[in-house]
């Protein structure tokens, strides 16, 4: 089994806070982390390999520093890592991202299963997984919480829906996105950590993927960001003082004045 896990480096929200005095957003020393949802994708990939044999390749598209993210996955026991990095990739929307990843996966040789995180916390779109499946023309499922390989290359998945869950089955190769219930990510092991430091990570650009610069990054994107701005701050904070009875009464009155339904 060759499992490819797609991971993304994203800005950490931790260092963003709201200054209650000025009501503005303060962002300081924003760092990059591996998209938290992608740790579950990595764990799912490793469990799949551990159970059914084969290898796991971690794949990311990002700036050169995204190599660090790949090394973090190697430290958990991922076998290979590939970085897609090219100036031309900057500003890719989900169309261009999934196209670039799809081309890379085709180049990786036979791949049986592609696992993505549920969504990335920067864009929050959850579009790359299904987009990847469309570009590769493979069956897919989303929000999987259990994966099982049946005989004859059939994949059975239990997936979370808005109303409960369902069981689906499809033929490999396939694409899945996974949720947290798939299992807690393991800790890095000493042996893997050592290997991760030394491991050679190939870097592929648009040319190596046989993609024109017009097909990738901002130029290859169908959506365009035309404006970026801060959300209107919440600046009307009111603290409700008094004994609890009084506080309850005051709050209820305020909520009723605000016409909250059901109150």
């Amino acid at each position: 089994m060759h499992v490819v896990v797609c991971i993304k480096q994203v800005p950490d929200a931790k260092n963003v806070r709201i200054d209650p005095e000025t009501c503005t957003l303060v962002r300081q020393g924003v760092e990059s982390i591996v998209n938290p949802h992608d740790w579950y994708a990595v764990e799912a990939a490793l469990r799949f390999r551990d159970e059914y044999g084969g290898k796991v390749t971690a794949l990311t598209m990002g700036p050169p520093q995204a190599e660090e993210a790949l090394r973090e996955t190697l430290a958990l026991g991922v076998d290979e890592a590939v970085l897609l990095s090219d100036r031309a990739f900057a500003g890719a929307d989900t169309w261009a991202t999934s196209l670039t990843l799809a081309r890379a996966i085709e180049k990786l040789g036979p791949v049986d299963l592609i696992i993505c995180g549920k969504q990335a916390i920067d864009g929050d779109t959850a579009q790359v997984g299904p987009g990847l499946a469309a570009h590769l023309d493979r069956p897919y499922t989303t929000y999987a919480r259990r994966l099982e390989l049946l005989n004859e290359g059939q994949l059975r998945a239990e997936r979370v829906t808005d109303l409960g869950y369902e069981v689906v089955q499809m033929e490999l190769p396939a694409v899945v996105t996974v949720v947290r219930e798939i299992g807690d990510p393991r800790m890095p092991g000493l042996k893997h950590k050592m290997k991760a430091k030394k491991k050679e990570i190939p870097v592929l650009g648009a040319a190596e993927l046989d993609l024109n610069p017009e097909e990738v990054g901002l130029q290859g994107s169908y959506t365009q960001v035309v404006k970026v701005f801060s959300p209107p701050p919440r600046c009307d904070r009111e603290m409700i003082n008094g004994e609890v009875e009084e506080q309850a009464e005051k709050l209820l009155k305020l909520l009723q004045e605000a016409k909250v339904p059901g109150l």
């Binding site: 169309w95 929050d124 959850a126 987009g131 469309a134 897919y140 989303t142 829906t161 808005d162």
Partner: peptide, 23 residues
Amino acid sequence: ATAMGRSFIPRVAVAVETGLTAD
């Protein structure tokens, strides 16, 4: 942008080759 919409609409966007803005 429900679990259902988020799951199948992105595939349609790619199939008809257009952009999709989430949420």
